[in-house]
Design a protein around this nucleic acid. Structure first.
Lengths: 228, 228
DNA sequence: TAGCTTTTGATAGTAATACTATTATTTTTG
DNA sequence: CAAAAATAATAGTATTACTATCAAAAGCTA
C-alpha cells in the first residue's frame, strides 16, 4: 500500500509511551526490534534487558521510552489497529453501495497482512502475528477498566464502531450489529491462530480464507429476518 | 444440575497435576482457594506463595500438587470444559431432531453458568469468570504446540468437535462447520467479557442474551446456501 | 568552538517471583 | 507402635521489573 505523504504517521495514544519512539533513531530501533523479539520469543519471555542487549543499548534507556512492556504492547497493537483503520477508511471511503462497502471492509480486515514500505522500522506481517498471539493479553487484565477510561483501546473500539455502522447501513433491523462487529474483529485473529496451531478446529487453510468464512457469516446474518 | 452418582468426577489430563488435588483435603483447598484468588486478583498477580498464606499452608506443599501456576490454570480450565461437556452430552443426548439438538447445545454453551452442588470445593460461577478472563492465556504461549501434542487441550477440542458434528447434522453442505463451532465457543467468552468491560461493543446486556445472538448467528449461517 | 542541554550508557541496588533443595515435623496406615 | 507418606519450615538461587544515580557522549547555540 502506497501513501501519498511520506511523513504520514499513525497516531496512537500518547500515554502508551514516555517519549515518542518516532522522535529518535533509538526509539525506532526499540520498536523495530521489540517486534522481532516478541514475535520470536513470545511476550512472556521478552524483557527490556534482552532488548537492550540486542540493540546494543541499555535497559535504562528503553525505560525512557516505555514505562514497561505492557505499555509497549499497547503501543504496538494500537499502532496495528490504527494502521488497519487507515486502510479501511482509505479503501471503503469512495464506495457508496452499503453491501459492497461492507464486503470490502470484511475483505480488508480478514485478509493476510501485506508489508507497507511507508513505515520502514515496522514489519507489519510480524506485527500482525503479534496481534494474533498477544492482543488479548493487553485487555485481559485487572487494569482493563482503568486503562479503557484512559483511552488505551480507543482505536480498536473505533474500528469496531466503523464495522458496526457499515453493518447497520446494510440492514438497520439486524438486532446484533455491535456483537457481530466485535465477533468478526476478534474472531479473525482467532481463526488465524487456529490455522497455525489447531488446524482441526478451523476450516481456514490454503484453500479456504478467513475472508470467505466471515463474508458468509456476516451476510447471511444480515439477510435473515427470522430466528432470534 | 443434579448428578445421579455422588462420586462423579470430571476427568482432566493427569499431566496437569503432580498429585491429584481431588485425592486430599489440601488438594481440594488448593483448588477451591486458587479459584477465589485468581478471580479476585487476576492470574498475573496470583502466586503460590500468596495462596499458601491464604490457606495456612506452605508454598512448597502447593508445588507438590501443581508444577506451576500455568499448569494449575490448565487444570482449572480443563475441568471447566469437562464439566460443560458433561452437561452438553447429558442434556442433548436424548434429542433426535438435529435442529433442536443444536439449538439446545448453543443454549447450554452460551447460558450463564449455574452452580453445581456436586462439586463442593468448586465455585462454577467464579470458574466461568476465570475462563472468560484467563482461558486465552493458557494457549497463547510459545509452548502451545508441545502442550497440544501432550493433550492439554483435548477436552476443549472435543467440545468443539461435538459442536461441529451437530452443525453438520443440521446442514451437511455448510462449508465452514469447524470455524463456526470454534467461533461460537470462543466468541461467547468474548461477548461475556465485552458485556462486563466494553458494553458499547456488544449487544448483550440484561435484555439480550448471548444465547439469542449466537442462535441467530448459527442458524442463519446454516439456512443459507448462497454467499461465499 | 566553548558551553549548555539533552540524550544515552553504565552501574548499583531493591523487592518480588518462581522456583529447588533439604530437613524437620506431623499424620496416616499397615 | 513403627514405618511410610504427607506436609511444613527454612534457606537459597536466578531472574524479573523496575528505580536511582552518575558519567559520557551528542547536539545545538551564542
Amino acid at each position: 500500500m502506497k501513501h501519498l505523504l511520506k511523513t504520514f504517521k499513525i497516531a496512537v495514544n500518547e500515554k502508551t509511551y514516555v517519549k515518542d519512539p518516532d522522535s529518535s533513531e533509538l526509539g525506532k530501533k526499540i520498536v523495530e526490534n521489540s517486534i522481532l523479539m516478541i514475535q520470536e520469543m513470545g511476550f512472556e519471555s521478552f524483557t527490556f534487558k534482552k532488548l537492550g542487549d540486542k540493540i546494543g543499548s541499555n535497559e535504562s534507556s528503553i525505560y525512557r521510552y516505555f514505562e514497561n512492556k505492557h505499555k509497549l504492547l499497547l503501543y504496538l497493537t494500537s499502532w496495528y489497529w490504527g494502521w488497519l483503520e487507515y486502510q479501511l477508511v482509505f479503501s471503503t471511503n469512495s464506495i457508496s453501495d452499503p453491501e459492497e462497502k461492507l464486503e470490502k471492509a470484511i475483505a480488508l480486515i480478514t485478509r493476510p497482512v501485506e508489508m507497507d514500505a511507508s513505515f520502514e522500522h515496522i514489519n507489519e506481517m510480524l506485527l500482525h502475528q503479534i496481534v494474533v498471539n498477544e492482543y488479548s493479553k493487553s485487555y485481559l487484565t485487572k487494569e482493563v477498566d482503568t486503562e479503557n477510561k484512559e483511552g488505551y483501546f480507543e482505536i480498536y473500539k473505533r474500528l469496531i464502531t466503523r464495522m458496526f455502522e457499515m453493518i447497520v447501513a446494510v440492514n438497520k433491523d439486524y438486532p446484533y450489529p455491535h456483537s457481530l462487529a466485535s465477533t468478526v474483529l476478534e474472531g479473525v485473529l482467532h481463526q488465524y491462530f487456529l490455522r497455525e496451531h489447531f488446524p482441526t478446529l478451523t476450516d481456514c487453510n490454503n484453500q479456504v480464507t478467513p475472508t470467505q468464512y466471515f463474508t458468509h457469516l456476516v451476510f447471511n446474518s444480515l439477510k435473515a429476518s427470522t430466528y432470534g
